[in-house]
Design a protein around this nucleic acid. Structure first.
Lengths: 343, 343
DNA sequence: TTGTACGCGTTATCAT
DNA sequence: ATGATAACGCGTACAA
């Protein structure tokens, strides 16, 4: 407590540093934020003093004076998901040494929360906003359309972006998976998901098209589960429901690897042979996908690049460079054992 | 671009709202931040105007004037891990409607990054800082000791905290697991981890004590792998090395479920019977732990509560209430099939 | 290259 | 219950 007060009273400001060095505050400010505008030796002296006094810039004051929060907001419903980890890494690598801070916020799949968080960001004069997993919520779209900064949407680029977008073409990715499964000889291929965000709806639509084109489409092949806490634990439920709806079921395309993992375990438990009796394809190429028994066919997306490019697009927009509004990073269908019927 | 400028010029401030209603700015400020200090009808009129004009408070100005950032910083190396998701949920549930914002930062297991992020927080006049997964870095500890705000450390409470701590007693949890495995009849029980943060080192120490007490300790039972991107994918490596070091190996205590998952898959692949030939115990009770075949014995921690209490402790400290410096949330050993030798 | 004057939008403090 | 005034700490704009 005493410490707290002390730290506050003793707050070191630009002026303190300036006095110690014998220059004006603005010079100290420049030495920190625009090093090239201060002579080499003076800058050295100043930075030395900064270090000695333990000066930490006041970001609030800086933001107020400069009319920029020097921060990039990242909004996602997947923050706590390991799918998002590589994205985060990319974001931070690109943002490092740019003077921009990254601030994350969790939307928890709740539109109200999303709106709230977006407003919070707007109040911080952000350099840009990166947002992933947006549902089709008109309020959110409206808000973003009137954003006071560039907005980058993540993950899908086949859908019209509010401002900019970077990601993969979800319909194409889905089509690649379905085609692969058809080629492998599967006929009754189910589509299974526990959530219906935009990327998933786009995949579903293409799934229907592709299956219809092959003369294989049946509505009962679709299974959209209610939102649940755990995707992995749905395995038994999925198999129960699908086999009831589709007695001749022979493959499942899962909208996320977690779902496929759960189904796979349940197959192990029930003695259903994968890939012989049941083909399985996931989405995301999670760490475990290469290790499961049998290993899991899935779609791999360049997640690190996703984050990296998103920040890059914001920084370029800030510099006023013309940027592509949409960046397609491509995907890769990773064919593994779970759909390899011939082996 | 045009939009951007417009949004900026048209920025609605307190004064705009005040003029529209015909009161002074400070009254509007109060209507928003201290509703009880404004008469009911006036407040209603003001909030109505706020809504109509689309006023969004400027957090920088607010922070500068109030000398508080109204934010709680959360620092973790596990941000992108699904272990952290429930913690996040708890943090946000407790912080909602308290006027405090949550800001996350990723330390990526890098002390330099950690120091950098901590300083960033300090520059934002935080109400408190929550930090998890701290390594034994003296610089970090020093920094935290001089924090201008309360600090809550997560996960372990058997270790002396810089300020406050909430979590579980890692040594005790480890001991419970090892005792359980010994009771189940396992003798050559390995300890395996890919990282050596404080909680893990604490578990390792207790592992040694417990094994020694049972007359079962051998140094070659310990396996600390280098830091790797993917824990799951280490399965084969772990089995190779351990069986080479310990031909009569009959159980593995993994410092995280991910490790156990990888080992389990590798056992499936090699036809090693779990739990008969090899007992397996994880840590964290991840979603999949209940679903694996066989299901995975593991230690469950109250993660949601962990986040909830951490924020609670900060808020109480802010109110000046005396708080326990250390909160033990307890753990649960979830006994499942992977250590059930008798079945 | 360095300095002066001012303002950013809000809240604390003190007054009415 | 409401208002006037003065900060908060920094950066912009302009001057020297």
């Amino acid at each position: 407590m005493a410490r707290k007060r002390k730290a506050y009273k003793d707050k070191v400001t630009l002026t303190d540093v300036a006095e110690k060095v014998g220059v004006s505050p603005i010079t100290v400010s420049r030495a920190i934020s625009r090093p090239e505008k201060v002579s080499d030796d003076l800058r050295e002296t100043i930075l030395q003093a900064v270090h000695e006094l333990g000066y930490v810039p006041d970001y609030a004051a800086r933001a107020l004076a400069s009319r920029s929060g020097h921060l990039i907001g990242v909004l996602s419903s997947l923050l706590g998901s390991s799918t998002f980890a590589p994205v985060m890494k990319g974001i931070e690598d690109r943002a490092r040494n740019t003077g921009q801070r990254i601030q994350y916020a969790n939307t928890l799949y709740d539109p109200q929360e999303e709106i709230h968080q977006i407003k919070q960001f707007f109040g911080q004069k952000p350099t840009g906003i990166i947002i992933g997993g947006v549902k089709i919520d008109p309020q959110v779209t409206d808000l973003l359309r009137n954003a006071p900064c560039p907005v980058v949407q993540l993950i899908d680029i086949s859908y019209p972006a509010v401002d900019m977008a970077v990601g993969v073409n979800n319909p194409l990715a889905c089509e690649a998976a379905i085609s692969h499964m058809i080629d492998a000889g599967y006929r009754s291929i189910a589509f299974c998901s526990i959530r219906a965000d935009i990327p998933i709806l786009l995949r579903l639509e293409r799934y229907r098209q592709r299956m219809t084109a092959a003369g294989l489409y049946r509505p009962e092949l679709e299974l959209m589960l209610d939102e649940q806490a755990s995707a992995v634990r749905c395995g038994a439920d999925i198999l129960d429901r699908l086999f009831q709806q589709v007695p001749d079921l022979d493959a499942i395309f899962c909208a996320h690897d977690d779902l496929a993992l759960g189904v796979l375990f349940e197959c192990q438990r029930r003695g259903i042979a994968v890939p012989e009796k049941l083909g399985l394809c996931g989405f995301a190429d999670m760490d475990y996908a290469a290790c499961t028994v049998p290993s899991l066919t899935t779609l791999k997306m360049p997640l690190y690049q996703l984050g990296y490019r998103a920040v890059d697009m914001i920084l370029r927009a800030k510099e006023g460079f013309r940027t592509e509004k949409t960046v397609d990073l491509g995907f890769e269908l990773v064919k593994r054992q779970s759909t390899d019927r011939k082996s």
